[in-house]
């Protein structure tokens, strides 16, 4: 009997070892360990044994069964794993094929510049002020120290609608309107982005419609050095930390003293090239200390308050920043142009 059992064990283990499929293994399990299997048969034959032998033989049967069962289990794991591998092998795909396209739009490059500037100034405590694109002569010119006979009006050829209304030529009227709302009470800290219009023929460097951002701060101790510091922060943020800024005296009717700001040329690093016309500097901004007439006209006491204002051309910034060579691209909206600005840039 014992021999028979050992024989069966050897035979079963042999088969388990040879089994190559899960089904085969299951058949072996049924064949050897099932109710009709040879081991069960051996158990049945135990009745013939003596009471002494019986437990011994019983224990032996269990050892054999367990041995077979454990080998089957082991083999099963091996086969299952192999089956999984085989299945995965079949499921292999070409990961170099392109992914499913996700529709993705983006800001216009001008909006990109405006939002960057807005966020920078919001961080410094400014709010964003907006106003109408069709303006009265008063807010567009007179409130900004440009009376009707002022020679500086020549500098801005405008689109008039009536004698008294026109397409605004700068976003400065928003400053005038905001100051008026403050009723002589500071502080005022705003930036004003928006569309403006001038009577220019559209070409590579002129557009009858373009965008500006202007800034205005009015408080009790505002100085030229504050303007200088603010614009330095701006220039470095927008054009990069390596840029240097240079101030030059200039003239605007609504500021006195006035200043024009150049940044060192990004293309040549200041050595002089065609973009900066050999000077190493590129003009990007105008500004100055708010003219006392402008303050007084808006109801601020110019003895108590002072302020600074500045203005920049959005297209100009975008052209310099991204190397765009024709201002008309911004308004043609060729998608091959628009799609170039749809990613982050450090």
């Amino acid at each position: 009997m014992q021999e028979r059992l050992q024989e069966l064990q050897a035979e079963a283990l042999q088969k388990v070892a040879e089994a190559s499929e899960l089904k085969e293994l299951n058949d072996i399990r049924v064949a050897y360990l099932g109710k009709k299997g040879p081991i069960t048969e051996v158990l049945r034959g135990m009745g013939k044994l003596s009471a002494e032998e019986r437990p011994k033989m019983g224990a032996l049967v269990n050892v054999v069964r367990e041995e077979i069962a454990s080998k089957i289990e082991e083999k099963q794991q091996v086969l299952e794993e192999a089956a999984v591998h085989a299945k995965l092998a079949v499921e292999k795909i070409d990961v170099t094929l392109p992914g499913r396209p996700v529709n993705k739009g983006n800001h216009h490059p001008l909006t990109r510049v405006i939002e960057e500037v807005e966020d920078l100034f919001i961080g410094m405590g400014y709010t964003v002020a907006e106003g109408p694109e069709v303006e009265t002569d008063f807010y567009n010119f007179e409130a900004l120290n440009l009376p009707k006979s002022h020679p500086a009006r020549d500098m801005q050829d405008s689109f008039y609608i009536t004698e008294e209304t026109l397409m605004r030529t700068h976003t400065s009227p928003v400053q005038a309107r905001t100051m008026e709302k403050h009723k002589g009470q500071g502080p005022v800290k705003i930036i004003c982005p928006g569309k403006v219009y001038r009577r220019d023929n559209d070409d590579a460097t002129h557009s009858h419609q373009f965008m500006q951002i202007e800034g205005l701060v009015i408080d009790e101790n505002i100085s030229m050095s504050d303007l200088k510091g603010t614009l330095e922060v701006f220039a470095k943020q927008v054009f990069g930390k390596e840029r240097e800024i240079r101030l030059r005296p200039s003239f605007f009717p609504f500021t006195e003293p006035s200043v024009e700001i150049d940044i060192s040329c990004k293309i040549c690093g200041g050595k002089g090239c065609s973009v900066c016309k050999g000077t190493g500097w590129i003009e990007v901004l105008g500004g100055g200390i708010v003219h006392p007439n402008v303050l007084e006209m808006a109801g601020f006491d110019s003895k108590k308050y002072s302020g600074f204002a500045f203005g920049i051309g959005v297209e100009r910034i975008a052209m310099l920043k991204y190397g765009v060579d024709d201002i008309r691209h911004f308004y043609t909206n060729d998608v091959r142009f628009l799609t170039q600005f749809n990613r982050h840039e450090s």
Partner: peptide, 19 residues
Amino acid sequence: YDNIPTTLPTGTVTPGHLT
């Protein structure tokens, strides 16, 4: 102008925000 110092406004603190 180059000799003018560089500072930032120090007056009243104002909260910056979008409407």
